[in-house]
């Protein structure tokens, strides 16, 4: 972005400020002025959005999402190459120990705020899009901790998965019902406490008893959960953190039978 003409850079700075002030009219006006410069603003807007989400700049992400629409970008492109890309960048930093949970949380808020702007436009294109794989996600019964589970959900969503969030303190039967109802690809369970870990094998056992175990991948995570524990209870994986959960599932899904093969 440093190579852009000075005039464009100045307009972009003005747009930053207008977005920060949540001045929608001025954002529109400045976006038009940027278009009038003749510079192809589409790649610039996507890069800018990714960086804003990564930095957790909520208001600016909203403003630049509006601008991106004005530049004629497809809403799905804005989502995948802008907003979700930014979430992926901060997720990667977190995975490498270069970022902390609060940074993931504000990035997540920025991404969702941008998504709200493009949501009405995306609905029109719903039929043209490939149906995303569904992950049923929740914190197990007895545990009210939400943050870790919500971060996994955010990063899965950013990677194109449709997440059915059951919230926290979720009874085991609810995981099973939701998996059936949504023809899920994966069930993701989280717990922060050693006291509630025993809920996880209960859900795995119920999936087996209902003949559903082969239809879904089972992911378990949270502070006390180890890879060894995941193996012992018959889960498929215990990712190290939210970012690696998304990375793992993106890879695992390629070797997994299609939804029709599994659910008929």
């Amino acid at each position: 972005m440093d190579n852009l003409p000075e005039e464009v850079q100045e307009l972009m700075e003005a747009l930053d400020e207008a977005a920060e002030d949540e001045d929608e009219d001025l954002v529109e006006e400045l976006a038009q002025k940027l278009l009038d410069t003749g510079v192809d603003m589409k790649p610039v807007a996507l890069e800018k959005l990714a960086l804003l989400v990564m930095d957790g700049e909520e208001e600016m992400s909203v403003g630049w999402t509006r601008a991106a629409l004005k530049f004629g970008l497809d809403p799905f492109e804005i989502l995948l190459k802008g907003l979700a890309e930014g979430m992926g960048l901060i997720g990667k930093k977190y995975e490498n120990g270069e970022a902390f949970v609060p940074q993931l949380l504000i990035a997540s808020t920025a991404m969702y705020s941008g998504m709200e702007i493009i949501a009405p436009f995306m609905k029109q294109d719903e039929n043209s899009c490939t149906k995303p794989a569904t992950v049923v996600i929740g914190t197990v019964e007895g545990d009210v901790h939400d943050i870790g589970k919500s971060l996994v959900k955010t990063l899965l969503s950013a990677n194109g998965f449709n997440c059915v969030d059951l919230g926290n303190d979720v009874p085991s039967t609810q995981f099973i019902e939701a998996a059936k109802e949504n023809r899920a690809t994966a069930v993701s369970m989280s717990t922060l406490m050693t006291t509630t870990m025993a809920e996880m094998p209960k859900v795995v056992k119920m999936l087996e008893n209902e003949g559903l175990r082969d239809k879904v991948m089972v992911m378990v995570g949270g502070a006390p959960i180890t890879t060894q524990y995941a193996a012992e209870i018959g889960a498929d994986v215990s990712p190290h953190d939210a970012a690696s959960a998304a990375t793992w599932l993106k890879g695992a899904i390629f070797d997994f039978p299609s939804e029709t093969e599994r659910w008929g």
């Binding site: 957790g56 902390f100 949970v101 609060p102 940074q103 949380l105 504000i106 808020t109 901790h145 939400d146 943050i147 919500s150």
Partner: peptide, 11 residues
């Protein structure tokens, strides 16, 4: 709220 604390800790 724990999530608010987390977000406010950076803001």
């Amino acid at each position: 709220g724990a999530e608010n604390l987390s977000v406010l800790s950076i803001k």
